[in-house]
């Protein structure tokens, strides 16, 4: 069972104080830390688990600058066998379709049975690339996957639906799945682990090598264009409670009760 996993490097934003440049076109990235997109991390782990159980090869693909090699090294340390990096030059300001075009041209010649992506990226949050890619490849696909069972020439997947329900789908192979968080417990990648895979060569390619024209990718090839970025305005509703400790506690309890916090 050969598996391709598309991964992405994203900035960590949980605790970061984001700043936007003066033109409102970009988020300032100097002080940000980068890591593999959380959903993609689960996708890589799932691919490696399937490989460990059924054999085969795992190839990871990313689209980005040289720094994004870190993400590929992380995936290799987790157990992937090969890595491809598509240089981001020409892909700036691409929408989901443009990114999917790049990935499509890079993976269409790689023989695979299963293609995994994260359900979405934690930065832009489009949740479109995996599905657009599957359409371009012309293979069946399922989104928000929380469980995979490998059959004979088919797979059965569990999809997460609303309010704690799941859908069980059987699909022919090859297939594309977008992986939801929580499907597994991604393993820890140690520095020792990364050092072990430092000799594995990462295949480099780019829009030119892939035969993509400017009209297909980048801002020209996009049907979505960003107008302006801004931080959300500070909302109202904050209230500073005053009084003695007991009074404050009493008031707090009352507010929680009023808002329906305690049933």
């Amino acid at each position: 069972m050969n598996i391709v996993v598309c991964v992405k490097q994203v900035p960590e934003v949980t605790d970061a104080e984001l700043e936007i440049n003066r033109e409102g076109t970009e988020i300032l990235k100097e002080d940000l830390e980068f890591d593999i997109n959380e959903w993609d991390n689960y996708a890589v782990e799932e691919a490696v688990l399937i490989k460990e159980a059924h054999g085969g090869k795992v190839t990871v693909v990313t689209l980005g600058d040289e720094d994004c090699e870190d993400v590929l090294r992380t995936a290799l340390a987790m157990g992937a066998d090969e890595a491809i990096r598509i240089d981001e030059q020409g892909f700036e300001f691409s929408d989901a379709a443009g990114i999917a075009q790049g990935l499509y041209h890079a993976v269409r010649d790689v023989p695979f049975d299963l293609l995994l992506t994260g359900a979405q990226g934690s930065d832009d949050g489009w949740a479109q690339v995996g599905l657009t890619l599957a359409e371009l490849l012309g293979i069946s696909y399922a989104s928000l996957v929380v469980g995979v069972e490998i059959g004979e020439g088919t797979i059965t997947v569990h999809r997460e639906l609303e309010s704690n329900t799941q859908e069980k789908v059987e699909m022919p192979l090859p297939a594309a799945l977008t992986i939801q968080t929580g499907i597994n417990n991604p393993r820890y990648v140690s520095i020792m682990g990364i050092q072990k895979v430092r000799r594995i060569e990462i295949k480099e390619t780019g829009s030119k090598e892939l035969g993509l024209s400017e009209a297909e990718i980048g801002s020209q090839g996009s049907s979505v264009a960003s107008q302006k970025l801004s931080l959300p305005p500070v909302g109202e509703g904050a209230e500073i409670l005053t009084g003695s400790l007991d009074e404050i506690c009493e008031k707090t309890a009352q507010i929680i009760r009023d808002k329906g916090g305690v049933m």
């Binding site: 340390a77 987790m78 393993r187 820890y188 990648v189 140690s190 020792m192 682990g193």
Partner: peptide, 10 residues
């Protein structure tokens, strides 16, 4: 350190 290196049971 062995468990960390394997990464699975951390």
């Amino acid at each position: 350190s062995k468990i960390i290196e394997e990464g699975i049971q951390v």
